[in-house]
Design a protein around this nucleic acid. Structure first.
Lengths: 141, 141
DNA sequence: AAATAATATTTGTATGTACAAACAAATTTA
DNA sequence: TAAATTTGTTTGTACATACAAATATTATTT
């Protein structure tokens, strides 16, 4: 039985993208338990952790562009988990009651996401890989 | 000067996605020299390497879904780099003259993409990271 | 041979993300 | 203080990708 590696397995562009798609799928699966996509879930967690946070800071923490953050906030506002307050040229983002009420579940799911991939990769290997990837990302940008 | 890591740097979902976005950006920058996005560029390379290849096999090699591959092929067909031939329930994909003519540039750009990230990460570290990520992706899916 | 299941491909639709441009407000410069 | 620049946010638009459903063809079973 011939085990064939992808022609592109030695290209970081491909490996990184493949892993990203798989992780997004796994993560979305987990967060779908509360009806949110991963990015939306982490956005709500981020705001829960710091009421009045500005989109700019969210975009730094989540490593997404400002426009993407605006779009994510809009949706969570529409769904009643977040609200915005214009404040000069900046905007402050707050959780609603409903948003805060999600926090326990969010943390639980985040933990079970970790358990899930750590059990497949090994805890130590998973942590090491995560750190390596993070450091590479820092060097590349 | 306070150097602060992202709150999420220890989460593989985030690290993987961040790296993926950075690599896609770098790669797209390189391939934009010939006016193609990365996925389209690799699709053309894949077909150049195997005339008559089927979308199914392309989707395996590129680790993309079949529908995504269809969309990529459509665009390259429209631009005159590929052509399709219906063949029973399958489809055969071929390069046109124009598509073949790109091959040298494609390989050059792919090489310079590698040089670019390898020079930032170190050749050995880059290769190791790529392999680690690829193996993790295999274990997770 | 007819019916059923499996497979390959495409289509309709939705989503996350980004870029560039538009705006608005604050800061700096002249 | 007026003008110019910078900064934070949002909007318009585009794109890659995926999922689910629809087709079409081939393979298998009865």
């Amino acid at each position: 039985m011939e085990e064939k590696k992808s022609q592109y397995c030695s290209c970081l562009y491909h490996s990184a993208n493949a892993l990203s798609r798989i992780m997004t799928k796994i993560s979305d699966e987990e967060f779908s338990k509360i009806g949110l996509g991963s990015s939306h879930a982490f956005l709500v967690m981020t705001v829960n952790a710091k009421q009045g946070i500005q989109p700019k800071e969210i975009s730094v923490q989540m490593q997404l562009t400002a426009s993407t953050v605006t779009r994510l906030i809009e949706k969570m506002e529409y769904r009643g988990y977040l609200k915005r307050e214009a404040c000069g040229r900046t905007t402050k983002v707050y959780s609603t009651e409903a948003g805060l009420a999600l926090q326990i579940k969010l943390k639980e799911i985040w933990k079970s996401l970790y358990e899930r991939y750590a059990s497949l990769l090994g805890k130590q290997e998973a942590d090491q890989l995560t750190a390596d990837i993070y450091n590479a990302a820092l060097k590349l940008e």
